[in-house]
Design a protein around this nucleic acid. Structure first.
Lengths: 249, 249
DNA sequence: GCTAGGGGATTGTGGAACAATCCGACAAGA
DNA sequence: TCTTGTCGGATTGTTCCACAATCCCCTAGC
């Protein structure tokens, strides 16, 4: 049964175009993770349906997808809201992150060259963005760097799990006033980690990774708890309506 | 703000009744993981909607939830089907399992007593089922045992991740002819692992866990590849129609 | 100042309709 | 005989509409 067309199989996925619900979810996911939709914003079915020219039913299917990814929360008879992350959530995210990235480090010996190269590529991108002073892009590249670390394991499910985690983490970044203060201290440590990986020092890499993630978690949690200052990235006053202030707990 | 009603918070979830889509998804998930819906079965919107007396809209929202959990696959303009696991999927599942359960073992020092006790509880249930010759229940208890191991980490997200993984794994069990042949050899090793955890031998537990999961993976993958024999759990001939045979990759 | 209740808006769910698409069968041609 | 074009039936994809349920806010009354 195997023949000369086997190479096409990989591209088969491109054939089935995404459904409308999938596309809507993609658009909303981008907007949320880019910070264009502030945490707490209510996503009205009618308003969004009109803006995206899709029906309420289709929109609701998209909401299900995003709720499953924890990017929005469903409140019965009240609608869906962009998720507001609590400090506990951040701590929990880092616990899972540690497990996944550790799995990547430990799989170093059996890693494919492409997977390993992706780590360095992401790191280079982060430093280029740093040199340009573009701290938003630095944040993106940093997340990609860590996705690449977990990706060393070569597992489809680990990749997806990390991708979700990183999208969720972006919600936390939105709660930290200064992107620069958040990312700058960790760029050099990324460099250290990448070096250890490239020289195959697995145990040292694991120690560094653990310490790194613990520190990062502490920084974000602290910024969230005493963080009363925002740098004005909140789009406009509509976010301050009453529906935002009530906690999700 | 904290008061005498804090204990009620845990049960708050029971208050907001689940939406119809959620309930439908729950029912279907149970049927799938219990093996009542064989992999490859097509889930007709009209037939299912009639059977559950819900509208197509609601059903489609439920399908989105299940597709996100990888229990069903969406094929554009063709409908949704109960997922058929490939050997590669099983291998991948075990990779993630190892990462999550290892995280549990490593968190042993800071584990709560309840979390640790859950490991022994699940194990006892498995052995009771074994004594009764109920191998289906043994399979369930075995999955709960491993969920408890990962649960030692005390992370909400790790728990959810494991729960999904276990549901998915059930699809693989459906491809193995003999439940007894699958589970029996591993019951004793569960016992060993639990013992190491209870005596706090973290490193040994981790080694045993790794070896355990590698062996289990090998058993299932082998059973799936050369598994031409089924024990007749496939409901009827409708499963053999052409739409089932094409791979999902 | 607090409780109770009404009004308005939005969601939850069902139902129907139409277009788009896929599958299988049949027919035509080499 | 094998391949290719075409047609018809069935199911999904998506939209629109309707109505009940629920929640929030505001006002009235004590």
């Amino acid at each position: 049964m195997t023949g000369v067309f086997d190479a096409l199989t990989a591209d088969r996925g491109r054939l089935d175009r995404a459904s409308a619900a999938q596309r809507v979810a993609d658009v909303l996911r981008d907007h949320i993770t880019e910070g264009l939709l502030a945490p707490g914003t209510r996503l009205s079915e009618e308003a969004l349906g009109e803006a995206l020219t899709v029906s309420r039913n289709t929109l609701r299917e998209a909401f299900r997808l995003l709720a499953d990814e924890r990017l929005v929360v469903h409140k019965m008879n009240r609608g869906v809201f962009v998720r507001i992350l609590e400090p506990d959530d951040v701590a929990d995210i880092y616990t899972l992150r540690l497990a996944l990235e550790t799995a990547g480090v430990r799989a170093l010996r059996s890693a494919t060259p492409e997977r390993l190269a992706a780590v360095r590529t992401a790191l280079n991108r982060a430093e280029a963005a740093e040199a340009a002073g573009d701290w938003i892009t630095v944040g993106t590249a940093d997340l990609h760097f860590h996705q690449a670390v977990a990706g060393i394991a070569g597992s489809e499910r680990i990749d997806e799990c990390m991708a979700r985690l990183m999208a969720e983490l972006r919600l936390a970044f939105a709660a930290v006033p200064s992107a620069r203060g958040l990312h700058a201290p960790f760029l050099r440590r990324n460099q250290t980690l990448a070096g250890l990986l490239e020289t195959g020092e697995i145990d040292d890499a694991e120690v560094e990774l653990t310490s790194y993630l613990n520190d990062a978690r502490a920084v974000i949690v602290r910024a969230m708890t005493d963080g009363s200052v925002t740098d004005g990235s909140v789009p406009d006053g509509s976010v301050t309506d009453s529906s935002v202030t009530d906690g999700s707990a």
